[in-house]
Design a protein around this nucleic acid. Sequence first.
DNA 1: TCGTACTGTAATAAATATAATTACAGTATA
DNA 2: TATACTGTAATTATATTTATTACAGTACGA
Lengths: 139, 139
Amino acid sequence: MTSDFAIAVHALVYLNHRQESVSSEQIAENVCTHPVRVRRVLSRLKKAGLVVTREGQNGGYAACCPAADIDLAQVAEALSEVPVSVKYRTGDLDMDCAVASGMAGVMDQIYDRMNAVCRQELAEVTIDQIDQKLFPRTV
Amino acid sequence: MTSDFAIAVHALVYLNHRQESVSSEQIAENVCTHPVRVRRVLSRLKKAGLVVTREGQNGGYAACCPAADIDLAQVAEALSEVPVSVKYRTGDLDMDCAVASGMAGVMDQIYDRMNAVCRQELAEVTIDQIDQKLFPRTV
DNA sequence: TCGTACTGTAATAAATATAATTACAGTATA
DNA sequence: TATACTGTAATTATATTTATTACAGTACGA
């Protein structure tokens, strides 16, 4: 899981909370990062239809659908996030030993299975649920 | 998931396959990494009782329990592996905004849940099962 | 319609994390 | 008792991540 994902979720929760157009600069201040980073992440969310943008004065990013309709699996998907990813591959396909040539593939399968269950977990969490955690509603 | 985990699993599968003492140099050759890296990882597996070592001539590392008794959750535990870990924390605890101060904690809970299901998956895979994948047994 | 306040993105620099390597003390074995 | 190993510290090299600068493009509002 990259930090882009954390920034995306934070921004979505913040935009849902604000319910108006917010500039990358203001979002960056809330997230504590650089405005350019916010733009890079949110432009991908825009492409996925999870936020809308308005340019010109008083423009910025805004929520465009009910927070209950956005789950974290959609956010991960929009960013092509792979929860468990290991770039390092042991062994070497060209070696004679079946262990040396086959282990990387076996590990990939294991990571795949972990990613599948991680995505299931993410699908269970919506932006609205996070909002409820941050702003408990008295019953 | 760090690459140490991949190295550990690879080494365990290899040691199980060899069924004898193997030096860090030979293991490193099979894994395609540096012998010192192998020693660092395997010394932790030794502390967890997953391998034994023998020093002196013809020494090295060796499997010490049936491959069917070692699952990947044990390996992860031995290395203190956290499948989904994100060092980057958005926002800032000291900020007034509930979103800015609370999001990092919310994200941590989400990572925790993913880690729990990942560990369940890892517990389902044993070294012996990996060996069977690499060396299919005709029935 | 024109200036302004934005987004989007490329390019670069700075910071950080990861991996390889060197070096060597300690130890059991043949 | 020499040797072949482990264990670990220290260092260097490499890769990745993050911040920053710069600027073209665009819609909004006066």
